[in-house]
């Protein structure tokens, strides 16, 4: 995973199109393939959206991709504000808020810590630094199921059991492995001379970080934010295990909602709820996807 952001300053060159098939046939082929694949990739989302706008009768009668005859947002409104989850009938909106309360600080703290760590690993050499970095990296790969019980014990000792700060802590701990890797691999591409010069000028540890490094590192900040935001937002396992009652994130509520079927499954509501729960991360990917790629390229795999 390190190579993903492995150094090569040349790689950041911003002209696309390594090779072109110049013939007309080639273009048709390229667009044809892309359009077909895009359709396949979009179909699930599309059918989810269409289904959420239909009435139950229409769902039973029609097919996956037929357009709703009279689009209705009734299902959306219902799952947002009125659906019953257990005995509480307030829809998803409260849980949606919880997710933001968890995601925003967790993302911010883990990205900040990752940036500091990455800076240390990249520019302040010390004995065994690669070994320690490797140890942190391996943390990216730990299956989360095995940490549940010991983590629960730890949170209990810290007095954070069942609270939102507790959940934030968990996400930060397992997030810094990734963010440290992102930043370290990005910062390592910055020429060492810049630091030497800055130090000669008397700039201290933090001055170098904030004045020199941070201004040039926004692509990797974006990558880290996207990565952490989606990871934390989509988490179910930690949320269900470490959050008490009213603190549960939206994924847990969504799971409760789609498993709450009163005889006949209300597919339109399931789909609307799934859409609502997925909206923030989809928006982030659509809005910031270009930065994501640019961030990957900035520390891209070297040629």
């Amino acid at each position: 995973m390190t190579a993903m952001l492995e150094s090569s300053s040349a790689a950041a060159a911003n002209r696309p199109g390594s090779i072109r098939w110049s013939k007309q046939f080639g273009r048709v082929f390229v667009y044809g393939c892309l359009a077909l694949l895009a359709l396949v990739f979009l179909a699930p989302l599309l059918s989810m959206l269409l289904t959420s706008l239909k009435s139950m009768d229409e769902i039973r009668a029609g097919n996956l991709l037929s357009l709703p005859s009279t689009p209705t947002f009734a299902a959306w409104a219902n799952v947002w504000g009125a659906s019953c989850i257990g005995v509480t009938c307030g829809g998803l909106k409260g849980y949606f808020g919880n997710s933001f309360l968890i995601v925003v600080p967790a993302t911010f703290i883990s990205v900040a810590l990752g940036a500091f760590n990455g800076y240390v690993f990249a520019q302040w050499r010390f004995r065994g630094d690669n070994l320690i970095f490797g140890l942190i990296l391996f943390g990216c790969f730990i299956p989360f199921q095995i940490v549940l019980i010991p983590m629960a014990g730890l949170l209990g000792k810290l007095g954070l059991a069942g609270t939102i700060p507790g959940l934030i802590l968990v996400h930060v701990v397992y997030g810094i492995c990734f963010t440290t890797m992102f930043f370290r691999n990005y910062f390592i591409t910055v020429p060492a001379e810049i630091f030497k010069a800055a130090r000669v000028d008397g700039a201290g540890f933090w001055a170098i970080f904030f004045r020199i490094l941070l201004p040039i590192s926004w692509p990797i900040v974006m990558v880290s934010i996207i990565w952490q935001f989606t990871g934390v937002w989509n988490d179910f396992l930690f949320g269900v295990s470490f959050a008490a009652g009213t603190n549960q994130p939206v994924t847990v509520a969504l799971n409760n909602l789609v498993n709450t079927s009163t005889g006949t499954k209300a597919y339109n509501e399931d789909m609307a709820a799934a859409m609502i729960a997925a909206l923030p991360t989809i928006l982030i990917y659509v809005a910031a996807g270009r930065y994501f790629l640019r961030g990957l390229m900035a520390g891209a795999v070297k040629g």
Partner: peptide
Amino acid sequence: RAVFLYPMALSFVVTGVI
């Protein structure tokens, strides 16, 4: 790019539903 990337943004609960 966005079309191909968006599935990454979905949680498994959503993916499972779809």
